[in-house]
Amino acid sequence: MIETTHENPITTLPYTPMPAVVTKIITETWDTKTFRAEFTDEALKENFTYEPGQFQQVSVFGVGECTFCLTSSPTRKGYIEFSVKKVGSVTSALHSMTEGGVVGIRAPLGNYLPYHEWKGKNLLFAGGGIGMAPMRALLNFCLDNRDDYGDITTIYGARTPGDLCFKYEYEEWDSKGKLHLTVDAGEDDWKGHVGHVPGYLKELAPSPENTIAITCGPPIMIKFILPEFANLGFKPEQIYTTLEMKMKCGVGKCGRCNIGSKLVCLDGPVFSLAEIDELPPEF
């Protein structure tokens, strides 16, 4: 029996990708591009909703499927975005794609950053490299709902100025909130801060008072930033991150993404540090 669907099938046919046209490709760095895609089905394009922190499975038909966070904010409707670092077969196929190409999308998947619990609080984003992508969804969401939150501060770092993503949004991030950029190694024309994100966090010493910290980046950054948060007085319940594990199905069946009895695809990808502390040390 063949069933063809015209609506988002994620709840009833969770393995069925919906075609979407790539309408914009932004070259972020030498190895990272951000893709904007619009569902070809008009009704789905119109009605598709998601929450900041959720993820998607993106198909290049014939090559395979890959897991990416939804980096766009649900406040900016009509399209979704995902940022892709070129590392394997699917990501390489995406990188060689041009505007007008067709991908398949299964979304939205996973839990989300509990922003509704954070109204009236200060938000502190601390990101490294491509780790800014999942946080960008919430950052832009909060900037679009500016009155609901206190200070919105972003500390973002990368290896070199050329490795910083989303440069075209820095003005907005710094005017509606406060943006602190840093690089591991500057170049001659780099006027900003030089140093790793954890060290910069220590230097800036934001108050944990009425503040939620969201952090995402390479494992080495996470390892060093968590003690800095603790030194500043942040409690595990105040720190959130999104975890990454290999996934195939994204819907809790294929058996890859468990950490102990939790599945990153269903119970995550968003976890508080308090929740992570309860898990076996396997990531």
Binding site: M1, T4, T5, P9, P19, G62
Partner: peptide, 20 residues
């Protein structure tokens, strides 16, 4: 799980569920 037909310039996705 799914069949994707890209002939004719359009991408059609079908879900072949097992016989009832």
């Amino acid at each position: 799980l799914v069949k994707i037909d890209m002939s004719g310039g359009e991408t059609k996705v079908e879900t072949p569920l097992p016989e009832d």
